[in-house]
Amino acid sequence: MSGTLLAVERLNLAFVSAGQRVPVINNLTFSVAPGESLAVVGRSGSGKSTLLNLLCGLQTPDDGVIAIDNESFGNASDAVSIARWAELRRQLIGVVFQQANLMPALSLVDNVRLRTHLAGRHKQDERWWLQRLGVGDQADRYPDRVSGGQAQRAALAMVFAMSPSLILADEPTGSLDRHTADEVAESLFNVQVETGCALVLATHDSELAACCGRVLDLSAAG
């Protein structure tokens, strides 16, 4: 056992809709070890994105505990916890969405530079990371001047450049065509293994899920 990076215990979250409590995350427990990859699957609306939001502190659970690197967070949404979550997102947790991961006003390399600056890393290896993800020659272009696949590669470069312990990816290839999606996914898994960071990947794509070490099916769990 190489220890636990992320531990989730009896996590609960419900939305209130028209006076009715609609449970989204229902008594969920799981853990992720450092360097491990976990696919979160489930139908649309099964709470994949919500879970990822909870795991990076963008939402607060009704109940349960999330522990990151042995630091526990409950359902408190006080200033201290909010600040601590922000610090974690800055330095430890990288988040990749389906799209719009980049500031449109900045070039790809400036996006990476801004992200690493926020993470407190000043290695000036932005171009290297873009090269590593296969978009080195697009580094000075603006997000709206590159393809969707290239933008997602840049987003991954940005996340890896901050040296996170955990990457939360929400359908990162969801808006790409099959071929590009496969290429981007390949880069993602390669670099993830290389850097040894953990990955929680929400997807409805079973092929992509199969690439992960473990699969958590929210439809079944719920």
Binding site: A83, R90, M103, P104, L118
Partner: peptide, 14 residues
Amino acid sequence: VWYFRLLGVWGLQG
């Protein structure tokens, strides 16, 4: 507004 939220996702506090 999303880009300001992105700054929050990237770890800037409110």
